[in-house]
Design a protein around this nucleic acid. Structure first.
Lengths: 131, 131
DNA sequence: ATATTAAAGACTCTTAATATCTATAATATA
DNA sequence: TATATTATAGATATTAAGAGTCTTTAATAT
């Protein structure tokens, strides 16, 4: 079990965008180069982030991506959901109602998610900046 | 991102074995039938559990599998490790030392794991029994 | 000796993730 | 308005991992 590469790239991209000056967009070319990815591939991921409202995109010259104005409190969980969707890590294979095993597994997953919800990208960006 | 089916089957099998009378072995035939699986497939999973020391196997007539004598305190995490191995859910794609993103993701995973470590199969088995 | 059962290895099938290519739509600016 | 630039969308190919089967071998009880 692993997080997808896409989630990994998305998190790095988001932190990078957080470090940009206000109102300035960054093109997919630059973002892709930074992580040694093909622009077309990364653009798929960026489109997901855009649809989730985490970033804004403007096509055309001088266009690109920037952090959404309305969303400066973006959590790790927000990014993960945007890329992977909200799915349960565990679903009882026998599929019986109120499975005790599933209950335990779900609770553990909740613990992880609540941690990821409490961690904001902006804090990581600031830490990275001050290094 | 999902837990494997194998983990799912393993957990159900373990709880089932927990509910057996002491010293009695159950064959893969019966265990497989219970979950509507092919015996050969389930046996792969059972072998992993055996190698991890969570259950004991005896070949031959009247043989089968039973919970390890020495391990009546088996946690959910033990079973997951036995089947999936201990791997990190997240590894920085840029692979730079002390990645701040990776740190956050790893901490969240630890929260999940510690919950799974604190939950014992025997407690689930007892609950299921008393229903 | 025989029946029974686990273990191991080779192999196939399926699915999801990864990634690329091409065409289209939108925007800035000269 | 024309052109260059950039995002979006769709089709398609590639890869890797998981799921599952089949067959052979080894171990054990009776």
């Amino acid at each position: 079990m692993k997080y997808s590469n896409a989630t990994n790239y998305a998190l790095h991209t988001m932190v990078h965008l957080m470090l940009q000056p206000e109102r300035s967009s960054v093109g997919v070319q630059e973002l892709a180069q930074m992580q040694d990815l093909s622009p077309t591939y990364l653009s798929k991921i960026l489109t997901k982030l855009t649809k989730a409202g985490l970033i804004e995109s403007t096509p055309g010259a001088k266009g690109g991506y920037k952090i959404s104005r309305t969303k400066h409190n973006i959590s790790f969980l927000d990014v993960i959901y945007a890329v992977e969707g909200d799915t349960n890590l565990f679903e009882c294979s026998i599929h019986h109602e109120g499975c005790l095993i599933e209950n335990v597994m779900t609770q553990a997953e909740e613990n992880m998610k609540s941690e990821l919800e409490s961690k904001l990208l902006i804090d990581i960006a600031k830490k990275a900046e001050s290094k």
